[in-house]
Design a protein around this nucleic acid. Sequence first.
DNA 1: ATGCCTCCCCGAGGGAGA
Length: 259
Amino acid sequence: MKIATFNINGIKARINALTVWLSEANPDIVLLQEIKSVDENFPREHFEDMGYQVETHGQKSFNGVAILSKFPLEDIKRGLPGDDADEQARWIEATVMCNTAIRVCGLYLPNGNPAPGPKYDYKLKWMERLKRRAQELIVSEEPALMAGDFNIIAQPEDAADPKKWQDDALYLPKSRAAFWEILNIGFTEAFRAVHQGPGHYSFWDYQAGSWQRNNGIRIDHFLLTPQCADLLVDCTIDFGIRGREKPSDHVPVWISLGV
DNA sequence: ATGCCTCCCCGAGGGAGA
């Protein structure tokens, strides 16, 4: 089974690029971030015609997450628990009903810039809530994963120019510490379980020729519970599509599970 | 570089992204 995460930066702007990539890569499950659409305007029929069940958690203009699945989805939940006043659509989870049921959580973690400030406070609070949900997934002792745009550069080798990010909300010590706290509950970061070393990125800024100069960062991650990590076969970044017409600034990352 | 693009709103130009 192939599960992908992809921050598409707007479903309306990316409908063609996403469709082409889906038909080439043929993932079973796709976790989408930044759909930037309300649920009613998401082109669900387009993806249903391609064989996917479509579940969205959108809002107007900003954020928004979705799950596309070729297997049935059950027990869908929208919104990260822990703050009923949070209006931002950044979390959706569901159980994928294949021969081994897998709980999949798609997330779009707040950017947090400028830091310090209220947006950075929101990022850190959101990560505290994420940690609580992560603990529940570990306690469940079931195959589960959290994947998406974490907006976290976890290590220096995850940035082409780490010095440039030193004062940025994606790389500040508190951001990285919060990420490692969650990971260290007992998750496997799928990409680093399979690949080591620098030069692997999932995001390149639209500005200043970042793609042409390979000035990227790796911020789209898969975190697997032990029962899910046992199934891990491979993890790959489809970086090539960043060079296509009208690309997202992120590229897809996907895992292969032996189920 | 308090922003070199690109997205969204919709029909100008500002907010957000990372």
